[in-house]
C-alpha cells in the first residue's frame, strides 16, 4: 500500500517542533542525498547554529559508546536536550553494516530529551561527511542543545567529521598499544580534549603518563588552547565532571578568541564537502557512459590513465581538449 510522499519542506517545518518522526525521516533523506531534500536542508542550515557540537573519536574498543552513554546522562542532569549521531563502519565487502552503539546507551532509551541515530559509513551515498553535518543541522534546528558525533577514528572522512565540530574529544584506552601506536593513528593532533578511558584498570596510569609526556613535546597551538588530558572510568562514573569542565572551558575559550575562525573553518569544510558531493555525482554519470570505451583503450595499452582522465575531466568542465 503506497502512501503519499511527504515533501521534505513540510518535514523541515515539522522538525522545528521537534517531531521525532519528521526529524528521523529528514535525516534519512539527507543521508540518501536526495535532490528533493536539498532546498529543505538549505532552509535548515540557515536556521541552525545554536547547538554545541562535540566530536568524539577513538579507535575501536577504546570505549567511546559506553563513555557517551554515561556522559549524556551527566549532560542531561544539567537540563539541555542531547542528540547523538553514532557512525560505524560499513562492511567493505557487502556494503552492509551492524550498528550496535545503541546497546551501550540503553539507559538513555526512554529519555524524551535524547535522540540517538546510527549511521553507517557507506550508508550515505556521495559523501558521508557532508551527510553527517546535514544531520547535525537537522538536530540543531529540532532544539537539541548538545550534539555528539561519535566516529571510529580510522578513516580520513571520520577523522575530518570529528574535527568539523566545536569541540573534538579523542579517546584513548589502556592496553591498546604504546604511544607510538597513538602517533601512528594520527588522530591525536586534532584533539581539543584528550580522554583516557577505562581508568578503573591498573595500566591506565601508564597510558595517562605516556599521553601527557607526548603532548609536552608538541608545538603549542595557534589559538593558545592547551588540550587537557582527562582520565575517566565509565564503569565507576568517575572523571566525568572533569570532562564536562574541560568542555565548558573549551567552549568559553572558543567564544572568547578563536570562535569565529573555527566557525569559518567548519563552514569552509562544509562547503568543499558539499561541492565535492555534487561534482562527483555529475562526474559519475558522465563516467558511466564513457568508462567502457576508455577502459578498453587502456587495457589494450592504446592510451594511458592520465590522458583518458584528463579527457573526461575536460568533457565535464567544458574545457577544450588540447589535442
Amino acid at each position: 500500500m503506497p502512501r503519499p510522499y511527504i515533501p521534505s519542506e513540510e518535514l523541515a517545518r515539522r522538525v522545528e517542533e521537534d517531531e521525532t518522526f519528521a526529524v528521523a525521516r529528514l535525516i534519512s533523506r539527507a543521508e540518501a542525498g536526495m535532490p528533493e531534500a536539498r532546498s529543505a536542508l538549505g532552509t535548515i542550515y540557515r536556521k541552525a547554529g545554536r547547538a554545541h557540537v562535540i566530536g568524539i573519536t577513538g579507535v575501536p574498543g577504546s570505549g567511546k559508546s559506553t563513555l557517551v552513554g554515561v556522559f549524556v546522562q551527566k549532560l542531561r542532569a544539567l537540563g539541555g536536550k542531547v542528540a547523538i549521531v553514532a557512525i560505524d563502519p560499513s562492511s567493505p565487502y557487502s556494503g552492509g553494516s551492524i550498528l550496535g552503539d545503541r546497546i551501550r546507551m540503553a539507559d538513555l532509551a526512554l529519555d524524551p530529551g535524547v535522540f540517538i541515530r546510527s549511521m553507517a559509513t557507506r550508508g550515505a551515498l556521495g559523501g558521508m561527511a557532508h551527510a553527517a553535518l546535514d544531520v547535525v543541522d537537522i538536530l540543531d534546528v529540532a532544539g537539541y542543545d548538545w550534539i555528539i558525533i561519535e566516529t571510529v577514528g580510522v578513516g580520513q572522512d571520520e577523522v575530518e567529521i570529528a574535527h568539523a565540530t566545536h569541540t573534538t574529544v579523542v579517546v584513548s584506552a589502556p592496553g591498546l598499544g604504546d604511544e607510538v601506536q597513538a602517533i601512528k593513528a594520527g588522530i591525536l593532533e586534532i584533539a581539543d580534549i584528550h580522554v583516557v578511558s577505562k581508568c578503573d584498570r591498573a595500566d591506565a596510569n601508564r597510558t595517562l603518563a605516556d599521553l601527557k609526556t607526548m603532548l609536552k613535546d608538541t608545538q603549542p597551538r595557534e589559538d593558545g588552547w592547551r588540550p587537557p588530558v582527562v582520565g575517566l572510568s565509565s564503569l565507576n562514573g568517575e572523571g566525568f565532571e572533569a570532562l564536562l569542565d574541560a568542555i565548558g572551558r573549551h567552549r568559553a575559550a572558543l567564544a572568547a578568541s578563536g570562535g569565529e575562525r573555527r566557525r569559518k573553518a567548519i563552514a569552509a569544510f562544509r562547503l568543499s564537502k558539499t561541492a565535492e558531493t555534487l561534482t562527483l555525482e555529475r562526474l559519475k554519470s558522465l563516467l558511466r557512459s564513457r568508462l567502457d570505451d576508455a577502459a578498453e583503450k587502456l587495457s589494450a595499452r592504446r592510451s594511458d590513465p592520465y590522458s583518458e582522465a584528463d579527457h573526461l575531466v575536460r568533457a565535464f568542465t567544458g574545457e577544450k581538449d588540447h589535442v
Partner: peptide, 30 residues
C-alpha cells in the same frame, strides 16, 4: 550478520528491551 552480508544496515537493540524502547529506537532510526 545475514542481513549485513546482503548489504543492509542493521541496528541491533541488544537483549531485554521493552516495546517502548524498541519503538523509540525504530522511529529515531527511521
Amino acid at each position: 550478520r545475514t542481513l549485513r552480508d546482503a548489504g543492509m544496515d542493521v541496528v541491533y537493540s541488544g537483549l531485554h528491551r521493552t516495546p517502548e524502547e524498541v519503538v523509540n529506537a525504530a522511529v529515531q532510526e527511521d
